[in-house]
């Protein structure tokens, strides 16, 4: 386990560098919420998901839906590091004619199951996939990542009701609970806690974890896969901008990329962290 978490953590920090570089080069994009969910996505794509980048439409694959589509830098990073496309293409993020659109678009870029960006829509889609898999008697599973600001969207609560009511147990929802949204603290805009109580009453199996602890993340996915007759909701407490000191908990970096100087500092910090990890 320790070796595996070390492997995942190193991967996640390498991809943190990609997130910084992609958004800096594009001079736009959403680094904060990408850095908060990259550890979760790394666990999914490099340990949990049954998928085949060589054959993206493999019948038996698990599905992943990025409902918070603005975390596309994190999503594209795990896709390219998994082998869906060359890492070099990450440089084209948000450029004209790029397959790496500002928000993920279903089409030519394999691995993107559906278009997301306008918030609140991913869970209904994940439900539909999970119901379809059940109809087909498939054992594949569906994972859906939500943002905590996104949880203000009414459609998500429609979908949460559907998943609980229909006992969609091949579904695992992960909430990237980084507590910040563009206009400030989520709890100041609209109180979301007590999240565990709310989601339990909507008939979910609810787990709450440290979203940057790789063992906890893997354990939670493992519990989710063994849970029957209830969908699982993992509330992952995370830090917006995680991994770069001056970006952590700094709402500025929700939708603003680091400038060239900040980028240099950020990359240096991450490299330092990577050297530490490799020494351990």
């Amino acid at each position: 386990m320790e070796e595996e978490t070390k492997r995942l953590k190193i991967l996640a920090y390498k991809m943190r560098k990609e997130i910084i570089q992609m958004t800096n080069k594009a001079k736009s994009g959403h680094p904060g919420g990408s850095l908060s969910c990259i550890d979760i996505l790394t666990c999914l794509y490099f340990n949990v998901l049954r998928h085949n980048p060589e054959n993206p439409e493999w019948e038996e694959r698990d599905f992943f839906i990025l409902s918070k589509g603005h975390a596309s830098p994190a999503f594209y990073s795990v896709l390219s590091y998994s082998g869906y496309f060359e890492k070099d293409e990450l440089k084209s993020f948000r450029q004209l004619n790029s397959r790496l659109q500002g928000h993920p678009e279903k089409g030519t870029l394999k691995g993107v199951e559906i278009t997301t960006g306008s918030l609140g829509q991913g869970l209904s889609i994940a439900n539909g996939i999970a119901l379809g898999l059940k109809l087909k008697k498939s054992t594949a599973r569906v994972y859906c990542l939500l943002g905590d600001g996104e949880l203000q969207e009414g459609q998500l609560w429609e979908a949460i009701q559907s998943a609980g009511h229909r006992k969609i147990d091949n579904l695992c929802v992960i909430l990237d609970r980084n507590r910040l949204q563009i206009d400030g603290f989520v709890e100041d805009l609209k109180k979301e806690e007590p999240l565990e109580d709310k989601l339990k009453s909507f008939l979910f199996n609810v787990l709450r974890i440290d979203g940057h602890n790789f063992n906890s993340i893997l354990d939670a996915f493992n519990i989710a896969s063994k849970t029957r007759s209830k969908p699982t909701f993992i509330i992952a407490d995370t830090i917006k901008g995680k991994g770069v000191s001056f970006m952590e908990n700094n709402v500025k970096f929700h939708g603003v990329p680091p400038d060239d100087e900040e980028t240099e500092t950020a990359l240096r910090e991450i490299d330092e962290e990577l050297r530490k990890m490799e020494r351990e």
Binding site: I114, N127, G132
Partner: peptide, 18 residues
């Protein structure tokens, strides 16, 4: 889907993906 049209369209989309 009950009185939840947005959820209905999303669920339909998901079903189409399988």
């Amino acid at each position: 889907m009950g009185v939840a049209e947005a959820d209905m369209i999303g669920t339909a989309t998901g079903l189409s993906l399988t």
